[in-house]
Amino acid sequence: MSIWIEEDAKVLVQGITGKQGMFHADKMVEYGTNIVGGCTPGKGGQTVELQGKPYPVWHSMTDAIDATDADATVIYVPPPYAAEAIMEAADAFDFIKGEGVIVCITEGIPTLDMVKAVAYVENRPGIRLIGPNCPGIITPGETGGAKIGIMPGHIHAKGRIGIVSKSGTLTYEAVAQTMSINEGQSTCIGIGGDPVNGTGFIECLAAFEADPQTEAIIMIGEIGGNAEQEAAAWAAENVTKPIVGFVAGATAPPGKRMGHAGAIISGGKGTAEEKFEAFREAGIACAMDPSELGAVLLESLKAVGLR
């Protein structure tokens, strides 16, 4: 098992004919992801060559899902059109299958476009949105697996640690840390650093708690908002598996946006200190340095007899 994405999940690529879309589609096929084709309005009927093999392109997501029975889609559409791409996918998945996972990689989508898109997705309960502005989701397999996004596939291995993070490269850092203590990953999810996004920490924690393959969790947050505090409080009541946490931005000055649109301390709220405190109160083992995540995780695993 894993969460939301099985190793052999059938995946579509929206924006597959674009430079970014094609580059990453190729990398996903190389990793072993079961890419079944893509969608670019106006380019239906064409094919795209990935790892030396042709893949079909459809005009619309309805046509693409109809033809492939896809389980998930990944969006590499530029910011002006990305929110609409999310809604098109949500509509098609909902209408045809009543379910589907949408992973949006695009960075820089207007916030009010996301307000609209998130409400649209939430009106379709079978649809899950991950992102935007995120590295995506990966479920490593024994050989290959499902890599849906831009993360470097080769650093992962199948295992029992679930990882959820707001940041891309910090997720890779966490993956490398699990590998350093000979642990693999069940599923890794980047939920993205935008102020308005789809899937949040709590949904990921709930899914990891319910997933038999996952035995421990790494949760990585950053300054801005209070999603980490809410997730910690929820975890204290509902998660029995060990959680290891880190929060980036302890040295960030207030009122300055630190790269991610959502990473800003406003009105003295959303500081790393506040979030670490909430983690500790919830019994989450904290690493103050991401290069210590492995050591802290190992201790947590030992404490519950998993090592």
């Binding site: 707001k166 940041s167 850092e173 946006r257 790269g259 990473a263």
Partner: peptide
């Protein structure tokens, strides 16, 4: 590039916003 000036003396060059923040934090640590 995304750059914010701070008051210290160790320059940082990092890829990714989260890792860039974490790098600052660890320097301080």
């Amino acid at each position: 590039l995304s750059y914010v000036k701070l008051d210290g003396n160790i320059g940082c060059l990092v890829n990714g916003a989260g890792l860039a923040m974490a790098t600052m934090d660890v320097i301080k640590l």
